[in-house]
């Protein structure tokens, strides 16, 4: 794919709503999410030679976005290590107007997840990437992705207070730990 390709501009613009949704869900800050998307587009544009024609453009863009996000996050964490509560404050500024109550609860629940869990759940559960694609995007093993998705679902379920799942899961987790202990 070349930069003169007129379709390319359309393809990149076409991916923006999904990139924004992903960035927003990951970082919980609409302004920062848009900056992330902008950085992603600029990086994608200047690295087009690194994109293999025929491979999945959307997956490639998501890879750039999450790599940008996590490297920024690591930098920020070093910078604000002492600033207690900065993270919690940032997470509480989600845009909540015109959002149904159910969804507000869901967003709150979603924020109990770790970044690792959020990203795989978004990729697989919301974007519809396969486990294999998600593994490639996050540079993790397929088994790790499956396990993260599973744990993310269990944690979300618990945070949302779905009863059946809660008792089912705390039991099975306990059994799992107990088995591991008795075997060791």
């Amino acid at each position: 794919m070349t930069k003169s390709d007129d379709d390319l501009q359309a393809l990149l613009i076409g991916a923006v709503p999904n990139l924004r949704a992903f960035a927003n869900s990951l970082c919980g800050d609409p302004t920062r999410a848009d900056d992330l998307v902008q950085d992603t587009l600029v990086k994608a544009w200047s690295n087009l030679d690194g994109f293999e024609k025929g491979s999945n453009l959307k997956a490639w863009l998501f890879t750039i976005l999450r790599n940008t996000y996590f490297s920024e996050l690591r930098k920020r964490r070093r910078e604000v290590e002492d600033a207690d509560g900065a993270m919690a404050e940032r997470l509480s500024v989600l845009p909540e107007q015109h959002v149904h109550m159910d969804l507000v609860d869901f967003k709150k629940a979603f924020n109990v997840l770790s970044d690792d869990q959020k990203e795989v759940l978004l990729l697989v559960g919301a974007e519809g990437f396969s486990y294999e694609e998600a593994a490639e995007i996050t540079n993790a093993a397929v088994g790790t992705v499956k396990s993260r998705v599973n744990r993310a679902r269990v944690a979300l379920n618990k945070a949302l207070g779905f009863e059946a799942g809660e008792s089912f899961n705390s039991n099975s987790e306990f059994v799992g730990v107990a088995r591991a202990v008795s075997r060791g």
């Binding site: 949704a21 869900s25 159910d102 969804l103 869901f106 967003k107 979603f110 759940l121 978004l122 559960g125 919301a126 974007e127 088994g143 396990s147 599973n150 744990r151 679902r153 269990v154 979300l156 379920n157 949302l160 779905f162 059946a164 799942g165 089912f168 899961n169 099975s172 987790e173 059994v175 799992g176 730990v177 088995r179 591991a180 075997r183 060791g184």
Partner: peptide, 26 residues
């Protein structure tokens, strides 16, 4: 043998509920 991989998946019905809410929000 570790508790992480031993974690049983959610029942399909609950997975569906969570998946639906996630997609709605997304």
């Amino acid at each position: 043998g570790d508790s992480v991989t031993m974690q049983a998946p959610l029942p399909v019905e609950l997975q569906g509920q969570i998946g639906q809410r996630l997609r709605e929000a997304y």
